[in-house]
Structure formats: C-alpha cells, structure tokens
Design a protein around this nucleic acid. Sequence first.
DNA 1: GTCTGCTTATTTGTATGAGTATATGGATCA
DNA 2: TGATCCATATACTCATACAAATAAGCAGAC
Lengths: 252, 252
Amino acid sequence: MGKEDRHPAERKFGSEEGGLRIHQAIARQLGTAIVAGIHKPGDVFEGEIEAAERLRVSRTAYREAVRILVAKGMLESRPKAGTRVLPRSRWNVLDPEMLAWMFAGEPDAAFVRDLFELRGVIEPAAAELAARRRTDAQLLAMEQALGQMRGHGLSTEEGRAADQRFHHAILAATQNDALAALASSVGAAVSWTTTFKQRRKSPPRDPFADHRAVFDAIAAGDAEGARAAMSELLRLALADMDIALLEPVGGS
Amino acid sequence: MGKEDRHPAERKFGSEEGGLRIHQAIARQLGTAIVAGIHKPGDVFEGEIEAAERLRVSRTAYREAVRILVAKGMLESRPKAGTRVLPRSRWNVLDPEMLAWMFAGEPDAAFVRDLFELRGVIEPAAAELAARRRTDAQLLAMEQALGQMRGHGLSTEEGRAADQRFHHAILAATQNDALAALASSVGAAVSWTTTFKQRRKSPPRDPFADHRAVFDAIAAGDAEGARAAMSELLRLALADMDIALLEPVGGS
DNA sequence: GTCTGCTTATTTGTATGAGTATATGGATCA
DNA sequence: TGATCCATATACTCATACAAATAAGCAGAC
C-alpha cells in the first residue's frame, strides 16, 4: 500500500476517546455526526476500507461501529449498495445512547418539543400509577432524591442528577417495564429543562414545591392528586422555559 | 486444532437463517434466547472462541452479533470479565427488533399487560393530537387502512397488517417523532390483541365500528371525541381479551 | 426502441491468526 | 485484617485473504 507507516506519533486516531473501546468511540462519532445532520438520511458512506483508513482504525473496529448504528436503526448496509443513513422515521430516537448523542450537541428544537409532549403524556399517567403501586422502598428513593435535590439545588451537577432520579423513581414505581423504558427519554427532557432554564432567567424559580406536591400525593396514595400535581409541575416547567407547546394534551 | 474438518455437509450452522446475514441471525438467536429466559440477567456467556466454534461461525460474525445486543442494552462485555446479560431494567424493551424477538415466542404475560397499559396512555393522547394536526395525506392513509381492514377482516394477514397501519398512521399524524417512535410497541400490542382474541372467542367481535368512530372524530378535527373514541376502542379490545388491567389509567 | 436476461465489477460479509489492552481475583506483604 | 501488586484470562484490535451478494452495465431478442 505504498506509504505504509502509520504515524506512530498520533496513536489511536488522535482525538480523546473517553475510555471507550474503539468501536464504541467510532459509533459515537458517527452517531453524533448523523443526529447533528452532518450525514443526512439517504447519504451513502464511503467504503469500509476508506472509512477505516481515514479514521485510522481497523476495518473490524469500523464494521462493529456500523453494526451498532444499524442496531439503532440509523444505518443500513448491503453489499454493493454501500452503507446509507436511514430516514429519521426509522431511528430509535428513544434509545438512551442516541438521546445522549443528540443532547451532546445542540438538540433539534422540534425534537425537544416532541420530547416534552411525550413527557406530558407519560408522566401524569405514571404519577397516577405510582401513587397506586409504589412500594415503600420506591417511595423512599423518591424522598431521598427530593432531599438531595433540595440540598444541592439545580445549579449543581448532583442536584440535577437527583432531579433525574426523582422522575426515574416515579416511572419505576409504576411497576411497568414499558413505561420504565422511557426513563431516558423523560430524563433527557428533564435535564434539558434546567439547562435551558439557567440560560434565561436569573435567578430561576425553585421547582422544589412542585416536586414536593407530586411526592406528597404519591406518598398519600392519591392517584388523581398525583396526576394533577405532575401536570402542574410540567405546566410550570414549560412556563419557565418560555416554550409553548402547540396545545397542551389531555386538557378538558 | 486437532480434528479441524468442519463438517462440510452442514454448512452455515445448520438452522435456516431466513435470508439474514450471519451476524444478524446469531443476534436474533441469542436475543430470542435471552428474552425467553434461557439466559438470565447476570449469566456470563462462554468465551468468544468457544461460542463461535459451537455456533460454527467466525469470531468476527459472533462479535458483531454481540455488538448488536450490547447496542440494545441486553449484554455487556469487558475484557477478563466476559460477556454477561444485563438486568432487564437496562434492556431497550421498546426497540422494534427486540419486540419482534419477544413476540416470536410466547411473550411474557406481565410484559403484555405493560404494553397495553402503555397503549392506554399513548393512544388516546395520540388520537387527540392527530385530530388537531393530521394532514390530508395522513387522513387518507388512515381511511385506506380502515378500508382494507374492513375488506380483508382480521382473520387474514392483510387485514391485520391494515390494522397496524391504521394505528401507525394515527401516531404519525401527531407530527411528533417521539410518539411515532412508539409505533412498534403499540403495533406489537395491536397485533397481539387479534392473535389472542382469535384463540378464545368464536366468532370474535368485529372491531370495525370502534375504529371507524376514531377515524370519524379525527377526520372532523374533534380532538376530545377522538380521545374518547380511542379510549373506548381500547376498553373493548381489553374486554375481548378478557384481560383486566389492574386499574384503567386516567379515568375520571 | 424497449425489454429481458446474463455478466461483471464493486461492496459488504465472513474467516483466521496474531498480538494488545484490561480488569479480575488471588497471592503477597504490611 | 487490610491494602497492594501481579499473573492470567478475556475481550479488543489489527491485518489479510477470500466469499457472497447485488446493482449496474451490456448483449441479445422481440
């Protein structure tokens, strides 16, 4: 292959890998590029050999990365036809890893709206179910998350993590695996709320009271109250972000 | 390696592959085994070399299969630690391929219940949004699906496919990518409804009227009516299956 | 001129073997 | 008893060769 020296100075394709295996690092790199719109649906990738050489990895590693993205519905690859980006409708946009890739950059505003709408559908129902079914251990988890949230505040990393844990605990308390699987999607929206909020208002409103109301209703086993409290929490969160969804869902 | 003859009689690991590439066939084989409970969370797989030899495929193909399952949150693999099945809470149970694997065998009753509960949360809200936002093309798609459903009946494969298309079209008409991504999950539940129904009652009730009511409300732009009609459709579907969810969600 | 069927060239898919990196669990030592 | 170190098992990466599949181009018939 002519100049076969592999630039031993810059080992491991230059960039920092973040402790990931190479195939996973490549998958992330390609995945973020796709969700960012660098590669659009319908685009055909270069051949495996060229791609692997450009990225300075083996064809094996590159192929394993492609398999990952295929598994998430982002790519399709066939002999002779090549590897191409699938239409967005085929993507598993609720896949946790994919959500992470989306929110690594500046996420698409329309999709953030979609996620909030999903939240508006899921979380009130989840709160209602959680009020009926939560175990004591799950209630304790919510209480602890709430406490840490209050303690650290949403300006800290720990506080935001606690916020996520609170919402996660509610979904887990529904005792429904299908709903619980939406935790990452809801979590992404939750996380974006504070990120977004802190860009605008200063000081931001403290959402502790809203959360507390949800918790109290769940603790009391008040299903209807829990649903209402969660709906109110979401309404306020949206107001904080100055986002208006086209229409609130489930209003009557 | 001693007896290195590879039984040229039974090429390609015996079983029928269904036109899939080998890595995908292996992924399906492992995936179905996991969802069926043959490999339980915490179980550690045999080494790559042994596994590949036993399945009579190359390590390359086996590894790519593992990458697929890792991407879906079913497996985790690390040097020295081996490849192990992750706890169910980490699985992307809403992944379309994974749902297909689950419903290939006899799906877990508890998970079917969960999926129906999810349907009960998602579809009424989706119907409401669809009534507000649907394009004429999407409305046409619903109408055609409805017509084919009536024409073929739910005892035929075409009829069931049309049923799925109808529900899918409603989700698409919400103009919400996050909701649309739940199409496979909803579709799995929809499909299971008829499968299950036809095992029991004979003749099964014709659900055309329920679907028609949903369609009419969406066509008329009647958001509240669409929500109500979809809720009624779900209520009747559940009754047909003689399944009672623990409690209906959102009732008031 | 259009269609059909074959050929071929390109691209992914599979196989194999060698060597590397990493985490683990046990041995060693304080 | 506890922490530290190290041998080792295991997945990870690489390079190369060959196989399979299929899209596209070409030839021939109608």
